[in-house]
Design a protein around this nucleic acid. Structure first.
Length: 856
RNA sequence: GGGUGUUUAGCUCAGCUGGGAGAGCAUCUGUUUGACGUACAGAAGGUCGUGGGUUCGAUCCCCUCAGCACCCACCA
């Protein structure tokens, strides 16, 4: 028996271990068609937050659904080493312990990092368990595993040999705090308040000067030219002359190039090739020297003369003061501009000339563009995100993949003492003449391989790879489209000739209840495990997947989690009632639909229509829409109406069988959303299997839908509501007994009497075929009239009837307008025309009933 | 500078390829049934952002404008 109260803790306790013990997540029936998902590997940087639920919970729901639909599902778990992020965290912890991580050396630090990884992997495992995720742990991977390292090396070497990886000296994004290069996507542009300084650059052998504006005066030590637009009438005459850099008094050539925007700033631009990507391009074009003026921590170097050793911003201030003293300062302007910050450290990124490894993106991106424009394209849900990815691909720069870190896949490049290099999957046997490149690869380099590296690639001749790759579906957030999704796609196309997944479901972000991003600095993050503690994981899962439409952000709303828990409580209690009615000796059996009474036909019909709608939406991964069909069925059709009505007939086998069937179907349908409570209820059903996880999803059966019964039941429901309304309107107690008369030629309405007595407190129910005089409130329906017999003012009754008549006339003329409109008849879809004709008939019948009453 | 999304009840949001707008919470009345007070019964609450267009018919499609949010981009 079920406990009296739905207690989520009691319900959830032990279930996950039970599933694990029975290997429901890891048993694969090879006779079934496969359905596979790989998890977006969470970073081992810390605990899971609410956002992780928006990947994993929808994925779990889909996996459980597909399993019940007869697929061999395989959901592969794993975690990401998260190079920069983890290294920063480990270094931070060491710092708190008073240890400078450099002092440990590479090996010593890595040992600490692995300890950290084990600790957080353990936490994450606990959390996956708490979320109820049906992950196949036998296939778990970690991005820094040896196996995956082999994949990474193979990919690197192959791309290198194809000329798609190269080493180059270019301007990259430098994080001066973490002292590493970053890729473009790891730079977050923020609108910062800055200043625009205007300085005079005196022209050599002249009294004139050029005024040049800059936002970063400290880089002036790296200036090698001043550019103007050759079309600029103001400055044309200076091209070929020299001016003096006010920072260091060096002579700078004044050069012309169309790149310069005449209308921006003063129209004269300083060129700092080693600290600005555009200037770098100009320098290449004109063969200018590239002078680096800072060290790796963004402190000024010897090129800055007396400012050497100063932080870039300190130098900036002092330099401006010194230029002022020279009389070369013109003015200062406040501006707002986009400034790049490191995604991880938030430090202002320094464009920095540096030797790094790059992936040549154009050919790889082109393959993705070609794929998405073909019939074999990956289906995005919602589709617009494909466009997001493509636009990025169309404007892509080469990818800087080397990082000056220790925690990561080390670059498989070996430098020989003689200056030659060896790019190889394996280290040379005799390392004495070699040293390996010190850098590691961008974390996303290995993440990009995840869908196939986890399935034993490059060994493609094995069951898992052949069966589960390409994976069926990816579920991830739109914030990862550039970082991860697009990179998985091009690497997969390049190395497996297949897309990494056939479909991808993109979700939005979870925000706080004010719509703000959850962040540590704001302290507005929600700990999912506190929510689980209070409301249960089923309620959290239900909340997270049913309150928004795909691709849109949602707000965390505790009230809705509570509402979810209430819904589950509703299902729980309906189950308690049904089980109580069924008793201990109940044996489930199929009763032919045609033999069922009207009410049973009605609820079975509605159940089938619900199965149809839910399934349709589940197939589209419209989890919110699917659940709302089920929700409405559970509340309105089942609990509020059928279950109550069943109290009159629940000793009959037909009713018992029906209650059982409907309850079981509901529990099965909602199981993917709320696995714990459904397992608990399921195991209390008669004739149950060992676990609900062995069950199949209810199937829609068009033969067990009967429209007449549905209409009949709806009419009864309407009558009950009308009587209740009558009492409220007349300030009568709800349980006031009334005499009712039903005027109808339809004999089947005789069965309404008992229900009306019970649920509308009818004292008597009289049936008459024609309309004899009846005093009281009158409610008209297409083929019946209900009279609540009472002594009421006749004129009031008449007034109400006239209002109803007018309403009906309006509907009739609307309907006639449509039906007499040839273009409607010609153009509208057939079913709409049929629908409208049916409505029209109903209106006419109702109108006639009203008119008959008015005659009396 | 490009691009995307969004604007529906007091609040948070649904609304399926166009056919008389729904839920949860909040509010107001009232407790009555063989499970549920985490409940039940009822009520109130919406010119579906603005202006146009297409259509027999528009919350939905097209255009305009406005507000809000986000993404991309090297403007010194």
């Amino acid at each position: 028996m079920l406990e009296k109260r739905y207690d989520h803790k009691q319900v959830e306790n032990g279930k996950y271990d039970f599933w694990l013990k029975n290997q429901y997540f890891s048993t694969h029936d090879l006779n079934k068609p496969p359905f596979s998902i790989v998890i977006p590997p969470p970073n081992v940087t810390g605990k899971l937050h609410l956002g992780h639920g928006s990947d994993t919970i929808p994925a779990d729901i889909i996996i459980r659904y597909k399993k019940m639909k007869g697929f061999d599902t395989m959901w592969l778990p794993g975690m990401d080493h998260a190079g920069i992020a983890t290294q920063a965290k480990v270094a931070e912890r060491l710092r708190k312990e008073g240890i400078d991580y450099h002092s440990l050396g590479r090996e010593g630090f890595l040992k600490k990092a692995w300890e950290w990884k084990d600790e957080y992997a353990n936490t994450i495992h606990q959390q996956w368990k708490a979320l109820g995720l049906s992950l196949d742990y036998t296939k778990e991977r970690f991005t820094l595993d040896e196996k995956l390292n082999k994949c990474v090396n193979k990919v690197f070497v192959t791309l290198y040999n194809k000329g798609l990886i190269y080493q180059g000296e270019r301007i990259i994004n430098w994080d001066p705090e973490l002292k590493t290069a970053l890729s473009n996507v790891e730079v977050v542009h923020k609108n910062d308040k800055g200043k625009f300084w205007y300085f005079k650059y005196p022209i050599v052998d002249s009294d004139d000067s050029l005024i040049v504006a800059t936002t970063r005066p400290e880089t002036m030590f790296g200036d090698t030219a001043v550019f103007v637009n050759p079309k600029d009438k103001r400055y044309k005459k200076y091209i070929g002359k020299y001016c003096i850099n006010p920072a260091n008094d060096e002579k700078l050539p004044i050069m012309g190039d169309e790149y310069v925007d005449i209308s921006f700033g003063t129209g004269a631009m300083k060129c700092t090739p080693a600290h600005d990507p555009n200037d770098f391009n100009l320098a290449n074009k004109y063969n200018l020297e590239k002078i680096i003026v800072m060290d790796e921590s963004a402190h000024m170097n010897e090129k800055a003369g007396k400012y050497k050793g100063l932080d870039r911003y300190v130098c900036r201030e002092q330099l401006v003061e010194d230029i002022k003293k020279k009389g070369l300062f013109v003015k200062i302007e406040d501006i707002e501009h986009e400034v790049g910050h490191s995604e991880r450290s938030d430090a202002v990124v320094e464009p920095y000339l540096s030797k790094q490894w790059f992936v040549k993106m154009k050919p790889l991106a082109d393959a993705v563009i070609k794929l998405q424009k073909s019939k074999k394209k990956i289906n995005f849900f919602p589709p617009r995100f494909s466009k997001t990815m493509l636009q990025w691909m169309e404007n892509i720069d080469d990818w800087c993949i080397s990082r000056q870190l220790w925690w990561g896949h080390r670059i498989p490049v070996y430098y020989k003492n003689d200056g030659t290099i060896l790019v190889s999957e394996e280290a040379p046997k005799d390392m004495s003449n070699y040293h390996q490149d010190e850098d590691v690869l961008d974390t996303w380099f290995s993440s990009a391989l995840w869908p196939f590296s986890t399935l034993n690639w490059p060994n493609t001749n094995n069951e898992d790879y052949k069966r589960y790759f390409p994976t069926s579906l990816m579920v991830t957030g739109y914030d990862l489209i550039f970082f991860w999704v697009s990179r998985m796609v091009f690497q997969s196309l390049e190395f497996t000739k297949e897309p990494p997944f056939k479909q991808i479901l993109i979700h939005g972000l979870i925000r706080d209840n004010k719509g703000r991003k959850m962040s540590k600095t704001l302290g507005n993050g929600i700990d999912p495990f506190e929510v689980i503690e209070r409301y249960g994981v089923d309620a959290l899962r239900y909340f997270l997947t049913t309150n928004s439409s795909p691709g849109l952000d949602m707000r965390y709303d505790e009230g809705k989690v509570e509402a979810s828990a209430n819904y589950l409580n509703k299902i729980w209690n309906s189950a308690r009632y049904v089980l109580d009615i069924l008793g201990d000796n109940f044996i489930p059996q199929e009763i032919p639909f045609s033999q069922l009474p009207m009410m049973e036909k009605y609820i079975i019909s509605r159940l089938n229509l619900t199965i149809k709608n839910v399934t349709k939406n589940m197939e589209k991964y419209e989890l919110g829409a699917a659940s709302s069909h089920l929700y409405n069925f559970v509340y309105d059709d089942f609990c509020s109406f059928y279950l109550e009505a069943s109290k009159l007939t629940n000793q009959s086998n037909e009713t018992k069988q029906t209650l059982y069937k409907v309850l079981k179907s509901i529990v099965l349908m909602i199981h993917p959303y709320t696995p714990f409570i459904t397992e608990e209820i399921y195991q209390n059903l008669p004739d149950h299997l060992k676990s609900i996880m062995l069950e199949f999803y209810p199937e829609y059966n068009a033969k067990t839908v009967n429209k007449v019964s549905v209409e009949s039941a709806n009419l009864l429901n309407k009558m009950i509501k009308d009587v209740r309304n009558y009492k409220v309107a007349n300030k009568l107690a709800p349980n006031t007994e009334m005499n009712l008369t039903i005027i109808s030629k339809d004999k089947s309405l005789l069965t309404f009497a008992d229900y009306l007595k019970r649920f509308a407190f009818a004292k008597t129910v009289n049936f008459v075929k024609e309309n004899p005089e009846q005093k009281g409130a009158i409610y008209t329906y297409p083929n019946a009239t209900l009279v609540v017999n009472a002594n009421i003012d006749e004129s009031e009754v008449k007034k109400k009837l006239l209002i109803e008549l007018e309403k009906m006339n309006k509907e009739i003329s609307r309907s006639e307008g449509l039906l007499n409109n040839p273009s409607f008849i010609n153009k509208a879809p057939k079913n709409k025309i049929v629908e409208e004709k049916e409505k029209y008939q109903k209106y006419l019948l109702t109108k006639k009933a009203i008119e008959d009453k008015l005659k009396n």
